[in-house]
Design a protein around this nucleic acid. Structure first.
Length: 537
RNA sequence: UCGGGGAUCGUUCAAUUGGUAGGACAUCGGGUUUUGGUCCCGGCAAUGGAGGUUCGAGUCCUCCUCCCCGAACCA
């Protein structure tokens, strides 16, 4: 927004609570923001302003607008009243300002125990907005702060720090999420009662604007719940590709530009809404379709033998190098050589002993095209004792080397493959939504009750040799399977068993028409709706 | 219970001062295609409800309904 209007953008950490701040979080957030593509003009901390905040607190005390309250947290809470019930004033509320000043200085000097007193703004205990019922400005915390060290033992609350920090920085537009709407009244009250002119900033004081947070279905964004997922090992860490955190999306291969496009497209609104992840995924696909190099990989291998494949003088099957385009969307990406021979791995999904309706792939008697290879016709299949297909036999047509038949006959499917003798083992992680419901926790109150039991499936697969070109952190399209990101973690946190195979995270699948057809076939599944038959109305 | 926000296709974001409700995702149909991908064409589909003002209301007024936030020494 700052760049759109030629302004400057500050990234500020409101580190007002020494108990919940740590440098690790700061570094992680700054790192995530940079990766997303934003360079803050300045990084600031509310703790930079503790001195000014303290001086302003005395300013309010001197004017009878703040007082030290000796009540404990429970008493203050009880005195605040409730929705529709007015609060009651604290017995300390009319203390003389000299005494308030003395007490406040003693608090700052460490002469009072933690929790014994607070400084409150003196506003209105009858106010219909709870934020205005004498909010707490300072609390005593005898704790070390990761930035201000042991200099302070009283710490400002968020409300007392936020607007003032904005004012000190000369911020004009202070953006925050919807739940702070009620706090805005207090934000304005503080700023109106402080000598901001002394700051020397030109123009108006800061103003707060609220907008709806970005929510997605089938996941959680609550820090509390995310932490539970991580700490209770439901996921592998903050960068587990199933999480919606920026570092997770990064590890999964989401291009930052796709995330930015998505955010720009949905815009900024005040409506509480929850976007379907499909929309984000469509931006990811658009980006990756243009940029990702193509390779062939087989995730659930099934052996295919070409029975009429020629052998060389030693009786060994011939090896042929086929030229394959690296990206049909980008001719400049060039081509590569892919080894082809008489024994190949194909996808189990690409063969059926008995083909269901609309199934275009391999089945006995049918001819399909091997991508960048030849037409092959299935002659028969070998099954084991349980009836599982273990091997598929085909014959190839040497005339179809160009991918077309000279006699003009067509095939309805093109399938991918990997030469068995040249296959390099890989491991692929396929992800489902982390939660199987749109709004996790809606039924039981606990989001974890809606965890998808199999949100990750690991496949031991094979890929063509040129997979070696794909370095960690980069995304490749496995043809017909989706986009996959080479894992960038030093040691894979996924339990990959004994395999040393490189790990690929499926960023997102390709649009899958066949999956839709199957879904429809399942839903119609022989049952006919009553109205469809009778023709009566 | 009181205060504050909000409500438009299945989902989501639009719609000058009141003037034909539009796009994207999803979905369905068709075309192209050596990825059932991409691309192209087309279809379906909405103003929460009831009144009122007006030639004309998603936009203005009244009442109602539903959803979200708010009673931390959290942010």
């Amino acid at each position: 927004m700052a760049s759109e209007f030629g302004g400057r953008c500050f990234l500020r950490f409101d580190d007002t609570n020494p108990a919940t701040e740590s440098p690790e979080y700061v570094e992680a957030i700054v790192d995530d923001v940079r990766w997303l593509g934003f360079e803050p003009d300045e990084i600031r901390f509310a703790s930079d302003y503790f001195d000014q905040l303290y001086a302003w607190a005395e300013h309010l005390i001197e004017r009878g607008l703040a007082y030290v309250d000796d009540q404990d947290a429970d008493a203050i809470s009880a005195g605040r009243g409730g929705f529709g019930q007015p609060g009651v004033e604290s017995p300390c509320r009319d203390r003389a300002s000299e005494e308030n000043l003395r007490l406040f200085r003693e608090m700052a000097a460490g002469q009072h125990p933690e929790g014994s007193r607070v400084l409150r703004a003196r506003i209105d205990m009858q106010h219909e907005n709870m934020q205005m019922r004498d909010p707490v400005m300072y609390r005593i915390r005898h704790k070390h702060h990761y930035r201000s060290g042991d200099r302070w033992c009283i710490y400002p609350t968020y409300d007392w720090a936020h607007g003032q920090s904005d004012a000190i920085e000369g911020v004009t537009h202070s953006l925050c999420t919807l739940e702070f709407r009620d706090n805005r009244t207090l934000y304005d009250w503080y700023l109106e009662h402080l000598p901001l002119a002394e700051l020397g900033h030109a123009g108006d004081r800061p103003h707060q604007t609220e907008f709806a947070r970005l929510e997605l279905t089938h996941t959680v964004t609550s820090k509390r719940v995310l932490r539970r997922l991580v700490e209770d090992s439901h996921v592998d860490g903050w960068d587990d590709p199933r999480l919606p955190t920026l570092r997770a999306l990064r590890r999964r291969g989401y291009p930052p530009s796709a995330i930015r496009d998505f955010c720009g497209f949905i815009g900024v609104a005040r409506t509480n809404s929850r976007h379907a992840p499909e929309l984000l995924e469509s931006f990811v696909r658009t980006e990756l379709n243009a940029a990702a190099p193509r390779r062939m990989a087989v995730l659930r291998p099934l052996k295919l033998v070409i029975t009429n494949w020629p052998t060389d003088d030693d009786g060994e099957p011939l090896v042929e190098y086929r030229e394959a385009v690296n990206n049909p969307e980008d001719p400049s990406a060039g081509t590569r050589q892919v080894p082809f021979s008489g024994t190949l791995w194909i996808e189990q999904d690409d063969f059926r002993l008995e083909a269901p309706p609309k199934y275009f792939r391999l089945t006995p008697g049918r001819e399909v095209r091997l991508r960048a290879g030849y037409f092959v016709r299935c002659t028969d299949a070998v099954t084991d004792a349980d009836g599982n297909v273990t091997e598929v036999h085909c014959t190839y047509d040497p005339e179809t080397s160009g991918g077309q038949a000279p006699d003009g006959r067509k095939v309805k499917a093109t399938i991918h493959w990997v030469s068995a003798d040249h296959a390099v083992p890989i491991e692929a992680a396929l992800y489902e939504r982390l939660f199987h419901t749109e709004l996790p926790g809606e039924r039981t109150g606990d989001p974890l009750d809606d965890l998808h039991p199999n949100s990750r499936e690991l496949c031991a697969g094979v890929a063509e040799p040129a997979i070696g070109d794909i370095t960690p952190g980069h995304v490749v399209q496995f043809e017909r399977l989706g986009y996959f990101c080479a894992d960038s973690a030093v040691a894979s946190s996924a339990d990959s068993g004994s395999s040393e195979a490189p790990l690929f995270h499926r960023t997102v699948g390709l649009r899958d028409e066949w999956a839709n057809i199957q879904k429809r076939q399942r839903h119609s599944g022989g049952s006919v709706r009553p109205g469809d038959q009778g023709g009566s109305r």
